[in-house]
């Protein structure tokens, strides 16, 4: 871990000012990923701005009729919030599929969006990694890539985004509220994270001095037929090889609306609205789910160790949608 200076900010303005004042500064909230990476010398912020005392720890009703999740509400408090459980069960389930109870008690909603990849090479400074050290090369492409991306990869990076929460947020059309030296702005969830392209060192479209203050959830009809499937190498406390956030809004057995987002397969939560839309009005059946899954995986490329994920992801989509279909029956 490098040497750094540290300040506690007491309000948003102070936090934004503090980070501007220090070169190479980072915000710290839960710290669960940042400190992990600092101990590995992967991230070396010269300054930490502690934002834990900011007044961003509420879950509130928003004007649209949905909920706004404060950036500093912990993952646990979000998942187990009664309103979230009732109105956004998909989000609740996704959060609870991630990390461990202890980590969920520390990690914040804002911080979760900034979680960095679990790529072995990113974590090991003895190896080449374009995300950690631009231009050094990608070791994973010809290396151990069982956990790596199959969609949206580039020749520079095949890392995945590790979050479960973000997969559900993507499915639910969340919006991220950001503030910074140039004022406030709102980012559609689909625009929040980036694909690696030529700039794999950039995980998202938020600039250094900007602070996520909250996440807006629009009103949602996906309260019954939802399922979060996490396929992993052990039953808990492991990152997803493939995860699927599946939600159905049904009229009889006909799809009124559908959401399918995938985790563990790309540099960002993977969702294709146009594919979802093409199934509106169709029957919720295994055949249709499989056809949808095939389309979702269009363009998927494997790198040897992770090639199995292409078929696995398709099966996971079918399973998640079938479970979502069934979960409505139990209610």
């Amino acid at each position: 871990m490098n040497s750094f200076s540290y300040n506690k900010a007491h309000d948003v303005a102070e936090a934004v000012a503090d980070i501007q004042e220090h070169e190479g500064a980072r915000f710290i909230a839960g710290g669960t990923n940042l400190l992990d990476l600092m101990k590995e010398n992967v991230m070396k912020p010269a300054h930490l701005t502690d934002i834990n005392r900011l007044d961003l720890a509420d879950i509130k009703e928003n004007e649209e009729g949905g909920l706004t999740l404060g950036a500093l509400v912990t993952n646990a408090d979000t998942a187990w919030n009664e309103r979230v459980e009732q109105r956004y069960p998909l989000l609740s389930k996704a959060i609870l599929a991630g990390a461990s109870p202890q980590l969920r008690n520390m990690a914040t909603n804002g911080g979760n969006l900034f979680q960095r990849t679990r790529c072995y090479y990113f974590y090991d400074t003895a190896t080449a990694c374009n995300k950690r050290e631009p231009g050094s090369g990608c070791s994973a492409i010809n290396g151990i890539n069982r956990i790596h991306a199959i969609l949206g990869t580039s020749e520079h990076c095949i890392a995945t985004h590790p979050s479960d929460m973000c997969v559900a947020l993507a499915a639910l059309d969340a919006k991220v509220n950001v503030t910074g030296p140039n004022g406030d702005r709102t980012v559609e969830f689909g625009d929040f994270h980036r694909l690696p392209g030529n700039t794999p060192h950039l995980d998202n479209n938020i600039s250094q001095g900007e602070l996520v203050t909250s996440i807006d959830l629009p009103p949602s009809n996906f309260t019954k037929n939802v399922f979060y499937l996490k396929v992993r190498d052990r039953q808990s406390y492991a990152f997803a090889l493939v995860s699927v956030a599946a939600a159905l809004d049904l009229e009889g057995d006909v799809i009124k609306d559908i959401r399918v987002a995938m985790g563990g397969v790309a540099h960002k939560p993977w969702r294709r609205r146009e594919v979802e839309e093409s199934y509106i009005g169709k029957v919720a059946s295994t055949e249709n789910f499989r056809a949808l899954a095939e389309t979702m995986l269009t363009g998927a490329v494997g790198f040897g160790g992770n090639t199995f994920k292409i078929e696995l992801a398709k099966r996971a989509i079918v399973r998640a949608l079938n479970e979502a279909l069934k979960s409505g029956e139990n209610l």
Partner: peptide
């Protein structure tokens, strides 16, 4: 998991 490019256990 050993990466034979590096001769190093990676996980």
């Amino acid at each position: 998991k050993m990466d034979h490019q590096y001769g190093r256990f990676m996980n």
